[in-house]
Each structure stands twice: as C-alpha cells, then as structure tokens.
C-alpha cells in the first residue's frame, strides 16, 4: 500500500506543478497529500508554488491586454518586398 503512494520529492513537486493547472489525477492528489505528511520541504514548495501561480496570473492578465502590431514603416517595407517577389514569380 505505502509503496503505491511513496513518491520522491521530484515526483511530488511535479504533481504539485501539474495541480496548479488543474490537470492532476485523483490518485496523484492522494500521493501528494501522503508525501506532505512526512516532507515539510515539499509542503513549503507547494505553498510557495501557489503564490507563484498568483504572480503568473498577474503576468498573464497583463499580457492579454497587450496587442502587438507592426509599425507602418515595417508594413511598407514588407509590402515592397512582397511586390518584388510577386514580380519575380510572374
């Protein structure tokens, strides 16, 4: 029984990372909880990991607001190059 639930810190923190995206199986959640019973370091990692997720979410929200566009000069240049190629292809 315990063999089935015994995982290394590397495995525990991998599950912990996956859980931040809600993509972890029920069995893995049990394995993780079991690991936390005797590993305080991974417990600390887990709590800090949730905080890091909050920070990443701030960053994600920020990125969503940005729209990237080419400048007018870049478009003019691109148009010119495309036209040259069209003439060559014709």
């Amino acid at each position: 029984m315990s063999k089935k639930f015994n995982i290394t810190c590397d495995q525990a923190t991998t599950i912990c990372d996956k859980s931040q995206y809600g993509e972890v199986s029920f069995l893995d959640v049990i394995r993780l909880k079991f690991h936390f019973l005797y590993c305080k370091i991974c417990g600390k990692y887990s709590s800090q990991n949730s905080k890091m997720t909050q920070v990443y979410k701030m960053k994600a929200e920020d990125c969503k607001k940005q729209i990237h566009c080419l400048s007018t000069e870049e478009k003019v240049q691109l148009k010119r190059e495309l036209q040259e190629l069209q003439e060559l292809e014709a």
């Binding site: 991998t14 990372d17 995206y21 990692y45 800090q48």
Partner: peptide
C-alpha cells in the same frame, strides 16, 4: 513545466 517552475521559483 516542472523544471521551468522549479527554476523560476
């Protein structure tokens, strides 16, 4: 993702 997050933390 795991390696990236561990390194970022």
């Amino acid at each position: 993702i795991h390696r990236a997050r561990t390194q970022l933390r």
